[in-house]
């Protein structure tokens, strides 16, 4: 708290040097883990993104639903796209549209964008979370590894009905 002596630039002690070295090595390890996983791991954050507008994106979603619809639940279409295809999911206050039906072990290009506010794509209980920003078509290449019914929760506050925004993905 009080002023130091005039010359405080002194060599570090042995314990300080030890800890500084160990901490630095740990920091380097933390740094290496990310590129390592980027090249070796199977779960990486998607980066593929396109500019879009709500109108353009809504048109793509409608075309997608019209092509692959197989059923309906509470007024929301259930859509079963073929493996490897482009899958379009629309976020808007307060709905995920449509319900997707996918196959386990098959890869899909999942597009997601928002019609209005920011939304959060939170797939539960798989626990994959992505940010959905209006004006951006975000493409996640996903491969479901488990079967069952999964819930998409919106986890970005999108005004007062936020907690009612619940969607579904079915994996067979």
């Amino acid at each position: 708290m009080l002023a130091p002596e005039q010359t405080w630039w002194k060599p570090m002690g042995r314990l300080e040097k030890t800890w500084l070295t160990v901490a630095l090595v740990w920091c380097i390890f933390l740094t290496i883990m990310m590129p390592l996983w980027y090249f070796m791991g199977k779960q990486n954050v998607p980066t593929e993104t396109y500019r879009t507008t709500p109108q353009d994106y809504a048109a793509k979603v409608n075309e997608f639903v019209a092509t692959y619809q197989v059923g309906e639940e509470n007024g929301v279409p259930i859509v079963a796209p073929p493996p490897g295809s482009d899958v379009y999911l629309r976020a808007s206050t307060w709905q995920w549209y449509p319900i997707l039906q996918l196959e386990k072990g098959k890869e899909y290009r999942l597009h997601v964008s928002s019609m209005d506010y920011n939304h959060g794509f939170s797939l539960q209980p798989v626990n994959i979370n992505l940010q959905v920003v209006p004006g951006y078509d975000y493409v996640a290449t996903i491969t479901p590894t488990t079967t069952g019914e999964f819930t998409i929760v919106c986890n970005e506050y999108c005004f007062l009905g936020h907690h009612t925004m619940i969607g579904k993905i079915i994996v067979k």
């Binding site: 990310m34 996983w37 980027y38 791991g41 779960q43 990486n44 954050v45 959060g120 939170s122 626990n127 994959i128 979370n129 992505l130 940010q131 986890n155 970005e156």
Partner: peptide, 10 residues
């Protein structure tokens, strides 16, 4: 970066 997918907005 990658672990954030498990945690973002939770």
């Amino acid at each position: 970066e990658q672990i954030n997918m498990l945690a973002h907005n939770t």
